[in-house]
Amino acid sequence: MTEPAEPQRITPLRETLTEPQTELPRVTTGGEWGRYLRVFLTFARNSLIRDMTFRADFIFHCISSIAWTAMNVGFYLIIFRFTSMIGEDTGWGQDEFFLFLATVWFINSLVQAFFMPNANEFSELIRTGGLDFALLKPIDTQFLISFRRIEWSALSNFAVGLLIAGISLHSLATREEAAFYPSPLSLLLYGFFVACGVAIMYSVMICLAATSVWLGRNQSLYDFWFYITNFSRYPMEIYNTPLGRPLLGLFTFVVPVLVVVNVPARILARPLDPRADWELPLAVWACVATFGCVMFSRWLFRHSLKSYRSASS
């Protein structure tokens, strides 16, 4: 009787493997942080290698984002031809407002460089089932999908922000009326609250990305992100009208995108002392809101993974 299916003859491989290896060494808690840092650096490195293989694209992205900045600056320069301030008695004159704009640019460029490409890719990973691989890795899934890609070209906006901030600070320090330099403490606080702002924006983005697990295609959710964050791009005083106050409350306390730019920009644009009596509570609230947003987004993200169905093929 012959064999059922002809067995495939397999030519033996000459080489032999070394003895089966023992388990991987355990990673200690101290080493855990180091491992995450190393993974992050490898992501950064790989993204840079990738960007450099498409150098023309990279340069082009830089140019177009600088053009976009120029248009915005142009727009506000036009507006300041007609007015001395954004809003009556708000203190957002041209120099102060351009510091505000620079802050918008810092935060946006950081979000765009570190999180935007990843959030965009996340819904793609859901759609194609590529999230499978992220779930297999022995590392926090949220960390993995949040930092996979870094868009270095978006940091060109950070540089442009520095330029705008530099010019405005110089102008503030040399103007005739009420000239001042920000103190080291203001700068320190500024850096801290910019970081808080980035964390809040990141949380909003993760929440929206998490919903794409339930909703599938979610182009309008990203539009939604732009529209929501659009509220954060202007001084909060402009909403201080009878009709605007509900919005002011909503975007300060429920979806706290208004504190993202306003708190740091306000710290830098004026001397630290004197301050209106509501500014300190607002800054404290910004810290609380940052913590709350990060925790909520993490909870929502984990929850959404439970509903992940993994598209086949």
Partner: peptide
Amino acid sequence: GTLMRFLPIITQIFLWGAIFNAVAS
């Protein structure tokens, strides 16, 4: 998507409101 598209208009209204306030002042 359609409703969202009007959201930036809201900020525009407030922004221009503030600008016109300042112009008047």
